[in-house]
Every structure is written in C-alpha cells, then in structure tokens.
C-alpha cells in the first residue's frame, strides 16, 4: 500500500507518553475524588436534616480510620486541584495595568491564594468557635 501519505497509528495510551501528560491526568482525576467527597458532604447535611441524634451518630461513624483515610485522600486531591487551578489564573485572566501585565506571582496571590486562605480561615473559625 504505497504511494500515499503515512498516518501514524492512533495512540490509545497517549497519557503515558510524557510526564506532563501524567501530571495532567492526575489533575483531571482529582475531580473523581472531589465528587465523591461532595456526595458524602450532602449525606452529612442530610443527617443534620434528620436530626441532631442522627448527625451525631454519623459524625461518630466518620471518625473511623477508613473514613479518615478517605478524607485525607480527598483533601490531598482537592488541594492539588486548588494549586493547579490557581497556577492557570495568570494565563487565563491576565490583568493589565496600562501596558504591563500584573506579574504572575502577584496575580496568583490576589486572585487565588489570598481569597483561599481568607475563606479557609473564616470557615475554620466558624466551625471551631
């Protein structure tokens, strides 16, 4: 079958080809863990809706090692989501001051890490107070 163009075979396992692709896949897969946590969170809220006794029982169940490990994995995944999301902010939302673009580290703090730390502090204060 000569005489024509050569088409490379389709690469099914393309995401294994470069370290950057593997990093990309890890970032994407954080969403599976985040979704799982969000469902557990809705369950927690549903228990609160049922009553304080049910919620207390549920919170006791969540203190087991298995649930702690699951939450630790979800936390790691979500923090990675946060970091990778903020990394894209300066590229996706450039801020210009006249001719100059706000430097990436400053943009990340102003539009990412600043609000993140503030929200985290407020939530933890609300829960612990």
């Amino acid at each position: 079958m000569s005489g024509g163009q050569y088409h490379r075979p389709h690469r099914r396992a393309w995401f294994m080809e470069r370290p950057a692709y593997i990093r990309f896949m890890i970032r994407e897969v954080t969403s599976f863990f985040m979704a799982a946590y969000l469902i557990v969170l809705i369950v927690t809220l549903a228990k609160v809706g049922v009553g304080e006794a049910a919620a207390a029982e549920w919170l006791q169940a969540l203190s087991t090692t298995g649930w702690k490990v699951a939450h630790a994995v979800a936390l790691a995944a979500t923090v990675w989501h946060t970091i990778t999301f903020f990394a894209a902010v300066p590229q996706a939302m450039p801020i210009y001051i006249g001719e100059d673009r706000l430097p990436a580290p400053i943009a990340k703090i102003v539009m990412g890490y600043g609000p993140w730390l503030t929200a985290t502090a407020v939530i933890l204060w609300g829960v612990l107070r």
């Binding site: 470069r18 950057a20 692709y21 990309f24 894209a88 300066p90 590229q91 996706a92 450039p94």
Partner: peptide
C-alpha cells in the same frame, strides 16, 4: 488545558492561556 502547547512554543505565544 493540558498546557503543553505553551511549554513547547518557541515564541512564547502561550496558546493555552
């Protein structure tokens, strides 16, 4: 947003952004 276009670009175009 794999982002590798921006990494390999010799002219710093930043297509991903």
């Amino acid at each position: 947003f794999v982002g590798e276009c921006t990494v390999v670009c010799p002219k710093h175009v930043d297509p991903a952004g």
